[in-house]
Computed example of a mutant assay.
Amino acid sequence: MTTNLLEFDLDGLVVFCEQLGEKRFRATQLFRWIHQRGAHDFDQMTDLAKSLREKLKGCAHVQALPVLSEHRSTDGTVKWLFDVGAGNAVEAVFIPEDDRGTLCVSSQAGCAVGCRFCSTGHQGFSRNLTTGEILAQLWFAEHSLRKRFATTERVISNVVMMGMGEPLQNYSALVPALRAMLDDHGYGLSRRRVTVSTSGVVPMIDRLAQDCPVALAVSLHAANDPLRSNLVPLNLKYPIHELLDACNRYLEHAPRDFITFEYCMLDGVNDQPEHAQQLISLVHAYRRPGVWCKFNLIPFNPFPVSGLHRSAAGQVAIFAKLLSDAGIVTTVRKTRGDDIDAACGQLAGEVQDRTRVTERMAKRRTIMLLPAEHFANDKKEM
């Protein structure tokens, strides 16, 4: 059984090479060949000693994930479905823009958090991805896109851990992958251009601040605990005040001086003026010098079992204006790749049949989605 070298950040590859009797600089050369040049054949790595290449052939390989399908949107977005074995698959999405190329990467097959508005959460959880499976999405996308565009220049400038799964619930595999993305001998991405999105795993936010601080995006979606707990069940364990305290602590280490709060706009659920006022009060209660947070309003991408609907464009505009007028930097996310089910909240992949599991979960669900007016005057709002 040989080792897939995509499983290692540079420090891990150094240890691997030392076990082969090789020095650190050999690991650096090898790391560059794999990640900067996309090499998978050791014979291609011409500046490595022939003896090392022969050793590697006997104990190692560089293997991307099998591609089950590729879909291209009319807007240039590309979605890949990768096979991760045992009937499971994960998706990655490339989003081209004039000034950047962003890759949305998955961290788990399925997701255990179960947010009401996310199709991935409705399929159930299968397993965590390994570091190599996380990095393989970037490795394949970067080097296949270079071939497609006939360039040797870097195509992917930004990575967002916003694909399938909750990244901070797969922490031990996530951090080495992030380090490989940031390493100058790897992809050389800026900490400001690598974003981890979380539904609010508070202890892991604190650990990430110490271990590998990158840009942070938090799925907020509500300003009071009853409504957020209904939409994001993890809020029952880590309520809003604990989450925002963790965000404040993270800012002491973050490469950016603000946290991005993601807010999925759900018709009649969290999109009314009173909800905007609750958010304004919440932000002001945690006021810091300067701009400490930004809001990204996300159009909901409906899927049949959610029972939810997208807010009207006019309602989103009213909501955004209320936040902006209160001095909160607010943007409305442009939907990309929705014609290939690659937009936010649409990634579901192909996992083993979990229909019965999902039905049982639905029957056990005791918190029902209540109308917006139920929460309008909630005494617990912050």
Rank of each mutant, 00 (worst) to 15 (best):
C59I: 13
Q272P: 00
E91G: 10
A136Y: 13
M265F: 07
I156G: 03
D47H: 12
M204L: 08
Q272T: 14
Q108P: 07
A39N: 05
D9H: 12
K334Q: 15
C115W: 10
D338G: 04
D339F: 10
M204E: 15
F25C: 03
F31G: 07
I205N: 03
P371N: 11
Q108E: 13
P302S: 11
A180I: 04
D341V: 05
Y263Q: 10
M161C: 04
G87H: 03
R365M: 08
R287P: 00
Y286E: 02
D211P: 07
F25T: 03
F16Q: 10
C111K: 09
E166S: 01
Q278M: 14
H374D: 04
L231R: 03
F42Y: 12
L279D: 05
L138A: 12
G345L: 08
H374Q: 10
G200S: 10
R249K: 14
G345R: 09
V194D: 00
P273C: 08
L174M: 07
T198D: 05
V291N: 14
K23V: 14
A92D: 07
K147L: 11
V78K: 06
K50Y: 01
W33V: 06
C111Q: 13
A39W: 08
A109K: 04
W139S: 06
T151N: 08
V283R: 10
I328D: 08
G163H: 01
A60N: 09
K79G: 09
A112E: 13
E274V: 12
C104M: 13
R207K: 14
V316E: 08
D271K: 09
L243H: 02
I240A: 00
F140Q: 10
D47P: 02
M164W: 11
R191Q: 10
R336P: 01
R100G: 02
F42V: 09
Q169N: 12
R207F: 03
I340K: 08
G307S: 10
G12L: 11
Q278V: 00
G163F: 02
Q210L: 14
Q210C: 04
K294M: 05
S69E: 15
S311I: 08
N235E: 10
T198C: 05
F16T: 09
H253P: 02
G114N: 08
R154Q: 15
L322C: 06
L236Y: 04
T102A: 02
Y263F: 15
H374I: 06
L174W: 07
L220C: 10
L178G: 00
A326V: 08
D353W: 01
D47K: 12
K363W: 11
R287N: 09
M368C: 07
R24K: 15
T130S: 15
V67H: 13
L251H: 03
V291T: 14
Y171A: 05
P167S: 03
V332L: 07
P289Y: 09
T335S: 15
R310F: 00
D83E: 06
N230G: 15
